[in-house]
Simulated scan of single mutants.
Amino acid sequence: MSLLHLSSLAEISAVEWDALLPDDQPFLRHAFLLSLEESGSVRPENGWQSDHLLWRENGVLRAAIPGYRKRHSRGEYVFDHAWADACQRAGIPYYPKWLGAIPFSPVTGARLLGDEDAVLKLLSALPDNLYENGLSGAHINFTTPFANQIMQQQPDWLERLGLQYHWHNKGYRDFQDFLDTLMSRKRKQLRKEREQVMSSGFEFSWYRGDGLREDQWDFVYTCYANTYAVRGQRPYLTRHFFSLLAERMPRSIRVVISTLQGQPAAMAFCLMDGNTLYGRYWGCLAEFDRLHFETCFYQGMDFAIAEGLQRFDAGAQGEHKLVRGFEPHITHSWHYLCHPGLRDAVGDFLLQEREGVRGWAIEARDALPYRRGD
């Protein structure tokens, strides 16, 4: 029995890795994670050193966690910058750290892969492994109920809660059927937003991953990169990543492109599985009033209804989603900090933060636009 490290997912076959996956969520697949590495989106030079953990028994892969050694906290969406700053002031090294997550993807999904007995053995070996490798701690982000039950049994791991907003398809026949469940004022607001965009002449077309030409992918990437450029930041993903993913996972990709007078103006890049549409990236070439809401939210809701999907996860944060019918969803992450003083201080903070998150989730439900009793 042994805990092994992979510096690249290329060191294991797709068949062996994917056999551990409990569902068809695209972010966990060998093809997705390897595309991040081979495209240069994830590499040591930008602070993401692949360090996937495996547990083998008698040569058989029993458990795994997709993971990375990090020298910063960017691209994680569970924000621990304040912890790192406090460590710096106290002279305690916070980086490098180990992160169990999907890069740049704040999507809840399986992180502890394999059977429970082997996962428990892997987790029990992890703390000593952190000390041996000079890592300040381990962090496992956006975990499922299965993982949460396991992590609650682990000593010294701290639970952190977050809040996202997801839209649920309650068997709607069409978008109007959804609107009919809303309070009158909210229904008029959403209808007005859609009509404003359509009356401006925008048209929308959906494409599968293998339905886009390379010049259209160039447009998708230009829009994606522009969302970072306007904030003075560099994009996380490279252009090559999109081509690799379109080649390897075309059926999981959906892209909606908005055109104005026949010219592309905006796009939203999504992934999907048999249950959920995941809105990942959006961008536009120029600012247009309400175009973001139509491209990123209403088009995705239309698509989910048409495809019979149960849920639309449009990404992290965004309280503005509440008034458009996206319901509060509590997320979970887990943190093991090697320094006992830091662990105690963060533990006290998280105890208060958890209560605040739970309280806001309750309050957020009161802001939903649904007719009372629905």
Results as ranks from 00 to 15, higher is better:
S2L: 10
L3N: 08
S7W: 08
S8V: 04
S35F: 03
E37T: 01
N46V: 09
Q49N: 12
S50G: 06
L53P: 02
L54H: 04
L54Q: 08
I65V: 15
S73N: 15
R74G: 14
R74S: 13
H81W: 15
D85E: 15
D85S: 12
G91H: 02
P93D: 00
W98C: 07
L99E: 04
S105G: 02
L120M: 08
L122D: 08
D128V: 02
D128I: 00
T143S: 10
P145W: 06
F146E: 09
Q149T: 14
Q152E: 15
L158H: 09
L163I: 12
H166C: 04
F175A: 06
Q176N: 13
D180C: 05
L182E: 05
L182S: 06
S184W: 09
R187F: 11
E193Q: 04
E195M: 11
Q196N: 07
V197P: 05
M198R: 14
S200R: 14
D210C: 11
L212Y: 00
L212R: 05
Q216E: 15
Q216R: 06
N226Q: 13
Y228T: 03
V230Y: 02
R234D: 14
R239W: 06
I253H: 07
V255T: 09
V256P: 04
L260K: 12
A268Y: 11
C270V: 02
D273K: 02
D273Q: 05
N275V: 08
L277W: 02
R280V: 11
G283L: 01
G283T: 04
L291I: 12
F293G: 00
T295L: 01
F297V: 01
F297H: 03
E307F: 05
Q310W: 08
F312V: 01
A316I: 14
G318W: 06
H320P: 09
R324I: 06
H339D: 13
H339F: 07
G341A: 07
R343A: 11
A345S: 08
D348T: 13
F349E: 12
F349L: 08
G356P: 02
R358F: 03
G359L: 03
A361L: 08
A367Q: 14
R371M: 11
R372V: 15
G373R: 04
